[in-house]
Design a protein around this nucleic acid. Structure first.
Lengths: 172, 172
DNA sequence: CAACAACTATTGACGTCAACAATTATTGCT
DNA sequence: AGCAATAATTGTTGACGTCAATAGTTGTTG
């Protein structure tokens, strides 16, 4: 057993520069079949790639995917205590603090005191926040389109359906 | 623009403990539809989950997903210089050093001098290494099975095919 | 063939960030 | 009133990506 091993797992390279870009991949090559024979590992790598693309188009706004996830969540519930963000999004409570701090600095969200519980703070989306969300929506679609390049619309639909089925019970 | 934002993107929570496990997800709930309306984001989250599961079952062996990727690659090519690992797997050359160090310590791989080029070192899989790979192969399949829970074999096949198509040109 | 540019593996420094433990303020229970 | 549980927050730790620098080696070119 290695002393320092097995801590973090799934960090993608920074966006500021293309990190040691691997050579283009041919699925025909034998090493490729071996590497991607397992669907789980394949998902892992594609998830990495997807996160990279997403962050790349979020980069100019100074936000990261985590911020975006918080915003998206807030948009669907219109107000949520930080604890809820933590449990639902799967981030540590301490991480939420920083994320909401950033969003507040940009004027995209606000902390409001909860009427029921004085220790809880309810995070709400501001007007600027939902505006930003609308603006970046098209960019997100563009990224998705780029990612799903070789698939025709019907295939994309089935893929989305399959992934959604997995997410239903598999996502924590 | 935030000063410290937009650096890393896609790190998954530690494996040693279930990190603030989100509540079970119903795709019927409105916030869920909003969050997972985009295939790219869905892929991102499932990739995260996949990495978590993978690392969880690699944890006891003291390795992480990165090590596993190197081993898998080595198994398919039977020997590769570190430079090749770096470009193909997308890790910085300096990262490869540490990974191969770990694998060597565990006796899973060896550095051999290249006959052609004395500055290059060829990393080869040892007997123990391929044995370990065989052992964890079933664990990997188990993980994948768990991840792909609600899908029947035919659906898994189509999912794998679709993901592979994306990976062909989309993976860096 | 000698000088030089390019390349491989490696090390070290720096900054960032996620995970965890501990702390503070507040709530609910009994 | 006392005490366990909870929400948000702070601080610490460890891992990681990036970059620069180095040593040894190769190939090229004048």
């Amino acid at each position: 057993m290695l002393e320092s091993a097995a801590r973090t797992e799934h960090r993608e390279p920074a966006i500021t520069r293309q990190n040691a870009t691997p050579k283009p991949i041919d699925a025909d090559e034998p090493w490729m079949r071996g590497l991607h024979a397992d669907t789980g590992y394949l998902l892992y790598r594609l998830g990495l790639r997807s996160g990279q693309l997403f962050n790349a188009c979020l980069q100019e706004s100074g936000l990261r995917l985590r911020h975006y996830a918080v915003l998206r969540y807030l948009a669907t519930t219109d107000g949520a205590p930080q604890r809820e963000l933590s449990t639902r999004l799967g981030y540590d409570p301490s991480a939420i603090v920083g994320l909401v701090d950033d969003l507040e600095k940009l004027g995209f969200a606000e902390r409001r005191p909860s009427p029921d519980d004085r220790r809880s703070r309810i995070v709400v989306l501001t007007e600027r926040g939902s505006g930003f969300l609308r603006d970046t929506d098209e960019a997100g679609l563009r990224v998705t389109g780029e990612l799903l390049g070789p698939l025709d619309p019907a295939e994309r639909e089935t893929l989305h359906a399959l992934l959604l089925r997995i997410a239903e019970d598999g996502l924590n």
